[in-house]
Nucleic acid binder design. Sequence first.
DNA 1: CCTCGAAATGCAAGTTTGTTTCGTCAGGGA
DNA 2: TCCCTGACGAAACAAACTTGCATTTCGAGG
Lengths: 169, 169
Amino acid sequence: MQVCFVRDVSIACIATLTRQFRSRHLAILQRDNTTPQRLIGEAVNLSAPAVQRRIKRMEQTGVIAGNVALVAPAAVGQPITIFVEVELESERTELIDAAKRQFSAAPEVQQCYYVTGEADFILIITVADMGAYEALTRKLFFDSNNVRKFRTFVAMDRVKVGLTVPLPG
Amino acid sequence: MQVCFVRDVSIACIATLTRQFRSRHLAILQRDNTTPQRLIGEAVNLSAPAVQRRIKRMEQTGVIAGNVALVAPAAVGQPITIFVEVELESERTELIDAAKRQFSAAPEVQQCYYVTGEADFILIITVADMGAYEALTRKLFFDSNNVRKFRTFVAMDRVKVGLTVPLPG
DNA sequence: CCTCGAAATGCAAGTTTGTTTCGTCAGGGA
DNA sequence: TCCCTGACGAAACAAACTTGCATTTCGAGG
């Protein structure tokens, strides 16, 4: 029946299958990492200890970077999400690095990316009100002598939020 | 000794203390939700069952919106993060809603926000390579008759990534 | 074709962790 | 004053996680 695989094909098949199973495993953890290993095992046809070992392996190799609880910003008094495109005056490496450090250090800066294109940085900021944002802009942008300009977008609707990575399979 | 509180002050004090303890509790879970309840209890001066009850309460009230594993995109073959500012032709409510649905439905769209300002939507997209992004733009933007234009920023460095909400205390 | 070794698995026992139960205490209102 | 509500701690209980060991599988090399 299903014999006579060309060697490369069979290897590819196995690799694909493995990856798919891992994908399903990871997909479950990405959705809810409190899922008991027993249930994950049933979903991927594995015993609980095997599930446990795979998780440990993925944590050690860095595939799983962390396990966190997601907090609803509005429920803790931080209902405002803001995007900022930041353009620097100078793109000297040291100044870029300094900006990275400064932005990262601010707890209000939830996410910070160094990007190509018409801006240098994109920040996602979480604050309680516009006053707090105004104060933060002063601290991060005006007090710095290296910010040429910045553009602000206020989120009206957090349509889709998460850090879920698309997985094959 | 510590008597003779004016009523409002003492209430405010208690409320503040409570909130601070919750903040510490939440801060721990935001960093690592696999932390044993016993350790959390030690950190916030509470017994394990009390910790358990608070977590359950916060999950039921929506303060904790989920418990997830963070997956490293590069480790699963999705190393490219892209930002897109999308501007629509029409801002009729139905079309806005249709766009929200369409963007949310795409697994590559990790985050989608409806914003004020010079754009209508900001998307954060995770893909394996630029070819995949090109295909996605065709699907999401060109095939739609409602996208006036979009601007792309490619992330060179994911300086700070997370969904951590700043907490008082 | 066969054997070997590395890696992954299942099973079963042991351990930690999470959950429930129960009794107690403090604050608020009738 | 008394009762009620809500939250707590201690202990018992249930569930999940973790480990050791024998087995299997797969690829490499003889």
